[in-house]
Design a protein around this nucleic acid. Structure first.
Lengths: 239, 239
DNA sequence: TCAAAAACGATTTTGGAAAATCTGCCGGGA
DNA sequence: TCCCGGCAGATTTTCCAAAATCGTTTTTGA
């Protein structure tokens, strides 16, 4: 989620447009709104309980972020997942996180380090995600929080905002994990987080490379799932 | 300009929101809308000749891109130029263009190379920018086209779109050049473009580093101008 | 004289209805 | 049988007026 939305809070002080934006985004990321399906304005109005204007603003924001595609006079739709798009997203994310973690290591103090250690602990103590689990959602949240803490100290708000957007994008693909999940492959992947923490806190020169490698592994993991999904149902996933 | 706007075309087939978006963006980048000034809805409505809804959508898009700042219930304003923000923008831009030019060199064919050579020619043949010149605007456009051509072959639409946004952002700072311009320093800077072209077309391994260095030089140039502007009028520029 | 509360003015935000636009379908002609 | 033009349905897009919200000023009380 981009910093300024708190999906749980009902709706006080925040405009309806912001509420609709948050709810809509959550539905896109969780996969509740199926990719490729056209979004009808009046359906959405009923779903999120607001008029035309707030909905329109929310859609505009999501289009600008790239979470929705818009054609002039033809409404908006959730973009189809694509292998090329996944590569595109992760390429950007890796380049930016490299930069961010380097900055954070230069500027971070012990409060920052403490934040990393804390979120690592919460990640390791999380119940391991299972195939059809509500726990998977929880694990994903902690995973995300850990990665955010790694770069939190970077004095570069725009950079962090962009990374947050890229994480949102990749989360859309992660929803596929719910279908095809292989617990046996997770072990090594999880262990990397501890190594990452040590490298970053010790300000080791290869920390940025390690992070890049970790993210690349994540990309390959999702790519593999996408490939399998394509074989099962070629029309569900483009390319 | 982000690929999808053609400011000269009147308004056929395109929605009013898109027109307003393009015009508003052009005014922000050119500096017609002064930084720090609050944008009044009804003023903008009169200026761009449209109702509330299209304007609202245009503003939402610009806020999402970071070209405008919005406070809930307090309208929008053009953000003040800041040294830290300039660094932030260029840091992102450099990281992304590094990636993009590497991709372009791997995927580009001779058509791509021809495009670079052509835009280099147009850049070199452009009348040199002068202090208060309309020619400066023309030169900037060709400069921008050259840099776009360098990475045009990268098969990564999201990456290119993001870079385009960052170029928009930095253009806002470039408007300062109109005030403080030093023609004598341009020589070396311009010469780099030819070296860059050769390095990229020859697929030299250090091409990405050269591009990064070139952009860093551009950042330092603008930063110097900003610093001077701050000394002249501390309140005009924050920090 | 100072501080707190209330009222005012201005601005944003929202909902509903009208206008413009696009897509799909049907019928006529080649 | 196939292609082209026009018609109807549906959808997006736009405008206008009302409602909610915020910042400021004025008033009241101590």
């Amino acid at each position: 989620m981009t910093q300024d939305d708190t999906p749980d809070l009902p709706a006080s002080g925040r405009t309806l447009a912001e509420v609709a934006y948050g709810a809509l985004k959550a539905d896109i990321l969780s996969g509740a709104l199926l990719p490729g399906a056209a979004l009808l304005t009046r359906e959405l109005m009923a779903r999120y309980g607001c008029g035309v204007s707030p909905l329109r603003e929310a859609l505009a924001r999501l289009v600008a972020e790239g979470l929705l595609e818009a054609s002039s006079h033809r409404g908006v739709r959730v973009p189809l997942p694509t292998l090329a798009d996944l590569d595109d997203i992760y390429r950007i994310r890796i380049a930016l996180e490299r930069e961010a973690v380097t900055l954070a290591m230069a500027a971070g103090d012990d409060r920052w380090e403490a934040g990393i250690v804390a979120s690592l602990h919460r990640l390791e103590r999380a119940p391991l995600p299972e195939k059809s689990g509500g726990s998977l959602r929880d694990w994903e949240a902690r995973h995300r929080a850990f990665h955010a803490s790694l770069i939190a100290a970077a004095p570069a708000p725009r950079l962090l905002r962009l990374i947050d957007q890229m994480v949102d994008q990749s989360e859309r693909y992660r929803a596929l994990r719910l279908e095809y999940f292989a617990p046996e492959k997770v072990g090594r992947f999880v262990a990397e987080h501890r190594e990452l923490t040590e490298a970053v806190i010790d300000r080791r020169a290869d920390a940025a490379d390690m992070l890049a490698g970790h993210l690349e592994g994540s990309r390959a993991f999702v790519a593999g799932i996408l490939e399998r999904a394509r074989q099962d149902d070629p029309r569900a996933v483009a390319l």
